[in-house]
Design a protein around this nucleic acid. Sequence first.
DNA 1: ATCCTTTTTTTGACTAATCAAAATCGCGTC
DNA 2: GACGCGATTTTGATTAGTCAAAAAAAGGAT
Lengths: 223, 223
Amino acid sequence: MPSSTVENYLKRIYLEEQADPGAAVVSMKNLAGAMGVTPGTATSMAKSLADSRFVAYEPYGGVKLTARGRTLALRILRRHRLIECFLVEALGLDWSEVHDEAESLEHAISDKLLDRIDEFLGFPSVDPHGDPIPTAAGEVRQTLLTALTDVEEGADVRIARILDQDEKFLRFVDRHRLRPGTRGRVLAHDHAAEAVTIQSGKLPAVTMGRTAAAKIMVEIVKG
Amino acid sequence: MPSSTVENYLKRIYLEEQADPGAAVVSMKNLAGAMGVTPGTATSMAKSLADSRFVAYEPYGGVKLTARGRTLALRILRRHRLIECFLVEALGLDWSEVHDEAESLEHAISDKLLDRIDEFLGFPSVDPHGDPIPTAAGEVRQTLLTALTDVEEGADVRIARILDQDEKFLRFVDRHRLRPGTRGRVLAHDHAAEAVTIQSGKLPAVTMGRTAAAKIMVEIVKG
DNA sequence: ATCCTTTTTTTGACTAATCAAAATCGCGTC
DNA sequence: GACGCGATTTTGATTAGTCAAAAAAAGGAT
């Protein structure tokens, strides 16, 4: 069995690949940054992941998950996201605080218990942040979403996914009723000022900067 | 924070001390046996636990928990037992299979989540095996129980606690309706043959040997 | 083509946890 | 009091994961 360190690296590599689908590989710099280790550590781990055939590693190039590595990464992600759902559903934790908890539980839970949880939850397809839950077979259903930065003024949208697990950011999202599933309208989109103004429910509209808006994925609602 | 290895050693030392309250200390042989490591490993861990002031270690003697060590051991035990309750209550797992799962989750769960679980369960005082759940303050309410081996023929008893987490044994107990909380009657106690016959509900009576009976703790019901 | 900066790799060291096997200790028996 | 056996400790080695700092490579700018 791979250690939880290995599991974390693979998960992280997967997420980095997703975050920048353009890049063919994940650099040691990015990997080290994402894992909070020094570059030398990332290099030596990359080699050992390659030895286990979880990644393809090209010296001075970077790493890229193999099919085997991706399968494992998705298994961890599945665990992580099902646990997040469970903590919210069964115990009423707030969606802004479940990420860190899931981060450690994902390595400790058995497959059997995970199946129970999946069943308990009614086989959900997304977690509380709107992130898709990979199937047990290792497939992810990708939905086509638009970043809030790419939405034109006046559009009606349904918030679908928040691409940031940071508790502070999630609480900001929550305060303005922008959590996945809610509807909203883009009141203004000032490209020069790099600011988007959105309004949800009866709450006052909120204006946010480009980087914040880029982390909010929506579906555009035809009206 | 102590590693989960350290947590496991402390928990194990606590349980060994409980299992043989007569002995002043836990020997390296017993500790190594209980932890499934070689004696040399137990010795070196004993030293390092002593350095952290979790145990008092006497070379060629043994180890004994300090107050500090006991507090931590009880914290782990509390986690373990609350998790067992939770898995049975919330997810309907069988009490015979929750022990191993709790064994790994106990090191991964946060205090905050544990408190939620405790609340969810209504602050239980015993787990599904009848083992007492230490309080958050680190106290254990010890109840006075009698081993089935010490019960006279004809006595009515209430099963209170099973001193063995082994799945096979627990399923045996279950099959004969002897789980904690149920009532039964000791039909025969043959001291020479070291066998006890007990009957519960409408089921046929079952006869078990001394070592099995010693693991079943009961309260004697006055009639 | 050379230099400079950034990235990557290498090297050497450290900690935690473990084992195997050799050395040593403690203690009951004769 | 010496012997011997079982328990304990020591020693030397291994693996996983990490860091700091030195060395090397890549690649763009001049």
